[in-house]
Design a protein around this nucleic acid. Structure first.
Length: 592
RNA sequence: GCGCCAAUAGCUCAGUCGGAUAGAGCAACUGCCUUCUAAGCAGUAGGUCGUAGGUUCGAUUCCUACUUGGCGUACCA
């Protein structure tokens, strides 16, 4: 159970007070009317209208009163009551609005953020839960591309968000290192490479292997036997042909070395790796067990099926007629093995939306096999990443390569820093540029509702202006330098202490409320598996803060007391920025 | 054919539980750097929320049909 935030507390106090008054009023005015419709709490569209809004439309009929008149009467009745909570009732047409006492909220918030620091915003609602999240899962025949990056951003972010909600999270990566597609790059390498290696060519291993995957496709266009040769190689691999296995091992090592390097530079990490070469035979026994238990059935040709027509999922084959495994077979086996390995309460698969049907079938099949944990499997499905001119196609060379994208973004960030003449102030120039590139990319990818397809516009993605990661990072950098200046120039002001009543500007009140709302955002992002809630929050906070500190001097505020109190607000914004950045893969930069 | 998903400004995206005048960014145009970092701030302009019905005091939001687009519907992964 999640603990209520301060803001929710205030809202609920007012809500029950008004509900109580409504009930009393109804009893007086119209007698016994039974239970009233529940009161709805909303946020007014504009700050001038108050902080909480309670629409009264639903009560008009019962009271035989127009909502505006009802709002007026309620206001008068509540104001007469002794000891109503701090705040002010404002009537706006049919709405009864409340302007809450943000000074006391700010005081409590400053204490809370000061105490919790990096933990502010986290909760323990998933405190007893063990959750695995499986993502990335690349093939070992080519380097990472933009599609993987959306997957990785989502996986990393969700892992952080779930941990912030108290879960013990285990990030796993199942490497697809076998299959006919792997044999294709191997075959092309055998035929065309003349023995080049990453060392001899100076090409990063995953890119080198990827080049041969492309070469295979070209060759297969001319030679109709190419596909069959690849199949033959797979057969040899499965039979343990030592020459094939040796080549496979060597090329896999190259690819993995390249992928590890990419992960490292993109800040992506895992708690465990699994290898399809070791798991691909799993699941067969489980399917046969299900056959014995009568939850599956066998066709005349020997293939094994599950009938999911009642779930509107049709009949699906689980084992080929020759007794060999399929994709779904090994997914069944892998899931069971994974649960034995590290018993989880929930398991999340971060996989593209094109596999929704597959996962529905997988989950239902595991349920039929009697695994109770199968109820808690989730497919975190994300849409495709397309380009403005259409789909990315590796054959047409329109795939956006992850390494290239990241290094070109880094180069642009570096150029930007130089053009501002700040290369002396940002510490390690390369590191800072890389951090900006990463923040830009993660923010770009996580901003969009994950289930939707998105269009990746290269021109737009390299812009660091507007609603972008660097815009957010810039806030942090500005705050950092402001705080540093405060400490060096006027340390004596610190002792004046925080007086929240001095923060009476509209933007200050809005900032306080927004900061108080952050824990709700973390909780909701965890509930809904939706990092875009965090990115949206970050933009709102940065936008508001940008305007605030542009219009209102902090260090040169009219009085030292006001300086001190504004500094407290700035510190709170800084802490929340840092905490939220960590959830969506945006590096915090003290200087940029 | 059947199933799942989407459709909001020129473009890319937000839009809370059905609620007040539907919001950002980019692109266009206008101001603001002797100023806590202009990767910024403020403003102008830009909308039949795909179409048609329905439910409701009230619909971008819920329901139905249709149109358009994407994905799936393999003894591929």
């Amino acid at each position: 159970m999640r603990i209520q935030t301060m803001l929710e507390n205030i809202r609920d106090t007012w809500k029950s007070l008004i509900e109580e008054e409504l009930a009393l009023y109804a009893a007086e005015k119209v007698g016994d009317v039974g239970p009233l419709p529940p009161l709805v709490a909303q946020t007014p569209p504009k700050p001038e209208l108050g902080d909480l809004a309670f629409p009264l439309f639903a009560y008009a009929k019962i009271f035989h009163l127009g909502p505006p008149a009802l709002a007026q009467s309620l206001k008068e009745r509540i104001e007469k009551r002794a000891g109503h909570p701090a705040g002010q009732i404002l009537i706006s047409g049919p709405y009864l609005n409340v302007k809450i006492d943000t000074a006391s909220l700010a005081t409590a918030l400053a204490a809370k953020i000061g105490e919790e620091q990096d933990r502010y915003g986290t909760n323990d609602s998933l405190g007893s839960k063990r959750i695995t999240i499986e993502f990335s899962c690349p093939n070992t025949n080519k380097p990472l591309h933009l599609g993987h990056m959306r997957n990785d951003s989502l996986g990393m972010s969700m892992a952080a968000i779930l941990a912030a909600n108290g879960a013990t999270v285990r990030k796993v990566n199942l490497i697809n290192n076998r299959g006919v597609h792997i044999c294709k790059s191997m075959l092309a390498y055998q035929k065309f490479s003349e023995g080049e290696t990453p060392e001899s060519s100076g090409i990063k291993g995953d890119h080198l292997v990827g080049n041969y995957y492309v070469k295979f496709a070209q060759w297969a266009k001319e030679d109709p036997t190419a596909e069959a040769q690849a199949q033959a190689m797979l057969k040899a691999w499965e039979e343990g042909d030592s020459e094939v296995l040796e080549l496979w091992q060597r090329m896999n090592d190259w690819t993995m070395a390249g992928l590890y390097e990419s992960y490292e530079s993109m800040g992506i990490s895992f708690d465990a790796f699994y290898w399809e070469s070791e798991t691909y035979k799993y699941g067969k026994d489980e399917i046969l067990k299900g056959l014995e238990n009568g939850v599956f059935y066998r066709e005349e040709d020997g293939s094994v099926w599950v009938d999911l027509t009642r779930d509107k999922l049709d009949k699906k084959v689980l084992l080929r007629s020759d007794g060999t495994s399929l994709y779904i077979t090994q997914d069944v086996g892998t899931a069971i093995m994974r649960h034995k390995d590290w018993p989880f309460d929930a398991h999340i698969y971060v996989v593209g939306s094109e596999q929704q049907y597959h996962f529905k079938v997988l989950f239902r099949t595991l349920q039929l096999l009697g695994y109770s944990w199968a109820e808690n499997l989730h497919h975190l499905s994300y849409g495709m990443v397309n380009l403005p001119e259409g789909k990315m196609k590796s054959r047409e060379g329109t795939v956006v390569d992850a390494d290239e994208l990241l290094s070109s973004l880094s180069a642009l960030a570096e150029e930007e820093i130089r053009s501002k003449g700040r290369e002396g102030e940002v510490g390690d120039l390369r590191e800072t540029s890389r951090a900006i590139a990463l923040g830009a990319l993660n923010y770009y990818l996580l901003q969009v509702t994950s289930s939707k397809d998105m269009i990746f516009n290269p021109a737009e993605s390299i812009s660091f202006n507007g609603n972008t990661g660097p815009y957010l990072q810039y806030m942090g950098a500005r705050i950092s330098s402001m705080l540093a200046k405060f400490h060096s120039e006027s340390p004596e002001v610190e002792a004046l202490g925080f007086d929240a009543s001095l923060l009476s500007l509209s933007d200050e009140r809005e900032l306080v409320k927004l900061l108080a709302r952050y824990p709700e955002v973390v909780a909701k992002a965890g509930d809904q598996y939706d990092p875009s809630l965090v990115t949206a929050y970050l933009y709102e906070l940065s936008k508001l803060f940008s305007r605030y500190y542009h219009d209102n001097p902090v260090l040169k505020a009219p009085s030292p007391e006001l300086v001190r109190s504004r500094i407290e607000l700035v510190r709170m914004v800084n802490q929340v920025l840092k905490n939220a950045f960590a959830l969506v893969g945006i590096p915090y930069l003290a200087s940029m």
